[in-house]
Amino acid sequence: MGIIKASKLVHEFIRRDEEGNVESITTALDQVDLDVKEGQFIAILGHNGSGKSTLAKHINALLAPTEGSLWVDGMDVQKEENVIPVRKTAGMVFQNPDNQIIASVVEEDVGFGPENIGVPTDEIWQRVEKSLAAVGMTKYRNHSPNKLSGGQKQRVAIAGVMAMEPKCIVFDEPTAMLDPNGRREVIRAAHELNREKGVTIILITHYMEEVVDAVYIYVMEKGKIIMDGTPRQIFARVEELKAHRLDVPQATLVADELRRAGLDIPAGILTRRELVEAILSVRESRRG
């Protein structure tokens, strides 16, 4: 079993009126199966309301399944005694950095988590040191978080999660509120954690450009997983992605246009470099 495993996971939001009668039921997750191996970098795509965040909140035991099961590192999240260990295993970074920074000095903010779980003081400082270094924010350890840019704040938030030493981190749209520079910083930090510390990463986003380096992608819509595969398999299905109103990297779109105009361009182009190579090889073959 992988570090995160969901089997037929269902979550229903039930709205009640003032008398407590059920007014409406929204199925946010509908029979979701997921299997993430330890050390993987996977991505979950989908637009607003597709159920991505609901899924993320299950992984962190913030929500409990209505039906089906979910195991985090082999622990069943439904069991009351597993809630705290699950949260220690799977950390979470949210969309808005301003909502998750609480201290007035960067290093204190990073130390807040480990202090809460009763880590001895010496070790807290060691963890703060390591976490800040891992996201490249050591220089700002004595700064006030208020004066940092969005990308820097988000990196402090990541360091705060890191300091809890989770095996897995769920990033729930960590870049939605950042400018292009901030976005790059955060995605780079996530990849480094994955590569260097072996942390399992689950990246939830709607920016396609951010997921091309993931090993596996799940696409969600209306609470269901509607596509899954490697980035190359997913992005080969341009028409389908567009029909689900998802964004496709521009290089993939140009490749698709060219292919439809009759050029011999392979499906599933993800990056600019691949596209340039494909176009040049078309040109070669025409010359030859």
Partner: peptide, 20 residues
Amino acid sequence: VGLAAPQVTYLMHELRRFGL
């Protein structure tokens, strides 16, 4: 200055560099 051009701008410049 921390901005970027659209992805296709880079693509076109690279193709240009290869003589297309």
